[in-house]
Each structure stands twice: as C-alpha cells, then as structure tokens.
Design a protein around this nucleic acid. Structure first.
Lengths: 248, 248
DNA sequence: AAAAATATTGCATGTATTTGCGGTGTTTTT
DNA sequence: AAAAACACCGCAAATACATGCAATATTTTT
C-alpha cells in the first residue's frame, strides 16, 4: 500500500466520522502504530487534521465539539460505548431506532466486521460509513415521529431473521413488569425483534428505570443484557440484579 | 516496445485502478525499474498522473474523497421545483435516491396528500416531515456509496407495486440510446422501478445529456417526462423533442 | 544504404525514504 | 499507586530513488 493511499484513506475516515483512533487505523490499514502516528503527524503538519492523544480529530469538528451538551447525551454516549463491547466480529446484529442506537452506530470500532440489520434509516446511514460492516435495511411503512419502519410488512420480514443480538432502546423498564411501551405498533415490532434474536440487549438511560407503561413488550427473563450509564453495582440497579440478566 | 505504448498502458492502468505500483509495472511491461520511474516522471510532468513514492496515483483519485459539497445545487433546486408540479393529490409516487430526488423531497408543497414509496432512507426522512404524505420505505441490502437499498429483495418488492409516477435521477441520457448506467445492480433496480410505474420522469441536469454509458436502462419511449434546469425550448433539447416525451 | 546524431534503456553506485522494533518516557485509566 | 495504553527516539533492514555511464535502439543526415 502506498503511503499516499493511506493518507487518503485516513482523511476519508476523518471526514466521515470527524475523528479516528490510531488503533482502528492500525487494524484497517495493517501497518504498525508507529507508521500511523507518523502518518497522522505528517497530515497534521499539512494542516489537514488535529492530532490528539490516541488518534486525530477533524479540523472542522472543533467548532461543533461542544454540542455534546445536548440532553442526556453524555449518558447515551456512555451507553453506546458499553454496548459496542458486546458486539464481536462475525455477529449478526438486529437494531431498532432511537437516539441511543444512533449514538451507538457512531461509536463502533472501525475494524468491526459484522452484519447489521436495522429498521432505522438513520442507523443505516451511520453504519454505511464503516468499511467492514454489511448493512441491511428493513423497509415498510415509515413512522414519521420515530423514524423507523413498522407495520405488518416489517414483522413478516423479521420472521425470516435469526440474529445473534438484538439492540433496542426502550421508554420504560421495571423490575417486575419488564419492558413496556405505549404504542401498539411499536409493541408488536419489538416483540418480533426479540423473537428473531438469540439474545437481546436493552439500552436504557437510568431515568427510564422503574417505569411501567400500558403495553407489555417482554419480561426481564427474555432480556440478556441491560445497558445503562450507571455502574453495574449502583443502588438503583439492585432490583434488576436478581434476574438472569447481565447488567453493564 | 515503444515508449509511447508503455505510456498508454500505464495510463490505462491508472484510469482503471486509480493507482499503480512501480513494481507491478516492471512485471507487466518487462522493463527495468529505472525505465518505469522515468516514464512516471514524464507522465507526471505532463500532468497526467501524480507520482508518489512507490508508484503513482490518478489525478482524479485525490478529489474523490474531499468533495463534500453538493454539485450544481442551483440546477437541482430548479429541477426539484419543476418536478414537484407533476405530483398531484392522491398519487402514488415511486422514487429513487440521488441528490436531485432528495432536493425534490425538500421542495414539495405542505398540503400535498400523496403516497411515496422510496428506496432511499434519506428521501424517506425528508418526506416524513410532511403531515399528509404517507411514506413507504423499501428495504434490502444497503449500498454504502449511493445510500439506497438494492439487490434482489428490493426488486421482488418492487414487483408488487403499481405506482402512478416514478421519479429517478440518472448518470446519462442520450437522444437515441436513452437512459444508461455503469452499475449492474443499479441498472436492474431502475428497470424494475420503471416497470412498476405507469409513467416515469427522469430528473437530469443538463450536463448529463448526450452521454451514453455501458448498460442500457430504458429507451426514451419508456420515459414520459424529462425534467432539466433548461427551458423546454432550449437548443440542446431539440434532439429529445421528437420523441413522445414531455420536456419540462 | 551507410554513417552520424540522437534517444532510449539497463546497470552500478551512492543516497534517501519508509517502516517496524526495542527501549524509554509520558499520559490515561483503574 | 499500579497498570495499561500511548508517544517518542534512534536504529537497522528493506525498499525506492537519482545519477552518470555504457550499450543498444531509433531517427536523421549524408
């Protein structure tokens, strides 16, 4: 591989994600860390990026850097990172929509080689930025507020799928009532998603814990992982720990 | 072997692969490395390629990744507005992806009461902003570059659809050769889209007129409308006017 | 057609670049 | 405070490059 090609690829990654980790580039380009660091140094000398500890940032990203103070964004980023660690090479992952999942799609390691099936166009667009991830988008009626595909068409497509892991956000999670929701269509959809996957991880910021809504989606016994921004031994999570549920 | 021949072969390799290694050329052309280096130097002097350590890169390769700007935006907005006038209340409209169609999705009248079926998540997200438009997203494999769903799954879903109007951009339109493209999957997809619709409108900025590419999608006789940013009586459009094709 | 002039090519030489590695210092995380 | 991750330095091997020169090929001139 020519050095200039590497530089081009690095710049493409930067333009796509606004940041890169050296470790990701090592895997992606199959060269040593020293080479990556030298590359980043050269690109930084040419004023094409900002080199930082562990990787580099896009020049243009600097200005928008502090929009990370959106509501509960920190918590969601934290959840996203924890969830990313659940996903291994070769897995088939089924995802819903929701801001937490979109955040996850931005936080995956560059070298991840997996298949993602999603009902969310926004997630699909984010995932398309990764070289080694295959993306399958499930279509159907398009829900205006939640920006996902829904309806019978989606559910019948889900029936054909056997995923290793299902990732979904939720509006409510309760120690005894499990996952609940308010919308009939979403309820059906989530049930179908869980049924199509070997394991399910619920991504849930702490303030949605302890709430119960109208419609039951699944009991805790059907869930394998609960990912929140809290520490696994947090007081608030005690009630969930009894179950056969891994808390991250 | 003549020097000029070598140069031609080198340029063909460059245009084909966007890059070339000196070592590969040595094997391919059976000459010494010195000769290759001198060849590359001469071609670089003539501004035909970029010589780098270890080989050379195509001139255009550089620009393929830093073109974050939308090209010919004004023309596309003009086309979008004209196209919007084709869409009436109650219609079922099938759309492709592409920047022109996305622009259209931003320019529709708020009161429009129609059903849109699309293979483009980005179009779906834009359309979801209209109260009275029902959006159906067709899913399948997700194409990283063009950001649309493609593949057999998409085509079989299209077979179930009967739309009133199909809207698609194109890479090339020629008075006698009609709509052509370079990619096999896209080709199949567009054919299926046209077959599923009563009428088809091609959205095409003027600079793509008169071009023919490798694969034929459809003849002009299968197209009902041609929408460009030019006036309908423009000189350049004369060649298309003879056909049974409405130019807007 | 032969000779001269010119251009092209390959080789040898020395130089420059690129890259991975080990050792060591620094920063970040636990 | 310890451990882990990252960064920096210098070194050595491999590779790529520039240059002059001789051998060969091509074109031009006679």
């Amino acid at each position: 591989m020519l050095k200039k090609e590497r530089h081009n690829i690095i710049m493409r990654q930067i333009n796509l994600h606004n940041r890169v980790l050296s470790s990701d580039l090592v895997e992606l380009l199959n060269v040593s860390e020293d080479t990556i660091r030298r590359d980043l140094q050269e690109l930084a000398d040419d004023n094409l990026l900002n080199k930082v500890h562990g990787g580099a940032l896009s020049k243009s990203y600097q200005s928008t850097f502090d929009d990370s103070k959106v509501y509960a964004k920190d918590a969601k980023i934290s959840i996203a990172k924890k969830t990313a660690s659940l996903i291994k090479d070769g897995m088939v992952v089924l995802t819903g929509g929701g801001t937490t999942v979109i955040e996850l799609a931005k936080q995956l390691p560059q070298h991840l080689h997996a298949t993602f099936i999603t009902i969310s166009p926004l997630v699909a667009v984010e995932l398309a930025k990764y070289e080694k991830i295959e993306v399958i988008l499930i279509g159907g009626l398009f829900a205006k507020n939640s920006q996902i595909s829904y309806g019978g068409h989606v559910i019948s497509q889900l029936a054909d799928i056997r995923a290793d892991l299902c990732l979904m956000g939720t509006s409510a999670l309760h120690p005894t009532d499990g996952v609940t929701d308010t919308d009939w269509e979403i309820n059906q959809l989530k049930k179908a998603m869980i049924a199509s996957s070997k394991k399910t991880a619920i991504l849930c910021i702490s303030e949605k814990l302890g709430i119960t809504l109208r419609l039951k989606v699944a009991g805790l016994e059907n869930i394998s992982y609960l990912v929140t921004e809290l520490d696994a031994d947090d007081q608030m999570l005690k009630a969930y720990q009894a179950k056969d549920l891994q808390i991250i």
